[in-house]
């Protein structure tokens, strides 16, 4: 699976990098390609390029915040998940999202 996404939290301080790292680590364990852009206080970190967005099977938004540059993901299935759930159970989140995408197709 090829997954791109964005994490963002109210302060943009702690949970943003935590969710990104947790999801990427879970991706490694699943042998998936997972890249999560962090939209926190430092501005975009680990930014997703258009090319990477185009190659993704789905887009995971780990946030209830407003996300910038969503137009990159036009035409892709976008799933929003609570950021705390992504930190708590990153592997389950990835698997659930993938299952939901498969069902849609």
């Amino acid at each position: 699976m090829n997954v791109v996404g964005v994490s963002a939290c109210p302060a943009g301080l702690a949970h943003t990098p935590m969710a990104a790292k947790a999801l990427e680590k879970a991706g490694k364990e699943l042998n998936w390609n997972v890249k999560i852009e962090q939209q926190g206080m430092m501005g975009p970190v680990n930014a997703i390029s258009q090319k990477e967005a185009d190659a993704a099977d789905f887009v995971l938004i780990a946030s209830d915040q407003k996300i910038t540059s969503m137009d990159r993901f036009k035409g892709k299935p976008v799933i929003r998940v609570d950021i705390n759930t992504c930190i708590k159970a990153p592997k389950a989140v990835l698997k659930k999202c993938a299952a939901a995408i498969k069902k849609e197709n």
Binding site: L13, A14, H15, T16, P17, M18, K21, A22, K25, I87
Partner: peptide, 11 residues
Amino acid sequence: QMLANLSTALL
């Protein structure tokens, strides 16, 4: 960055 490093260390 240091605060981010601390946060991710807690994983």
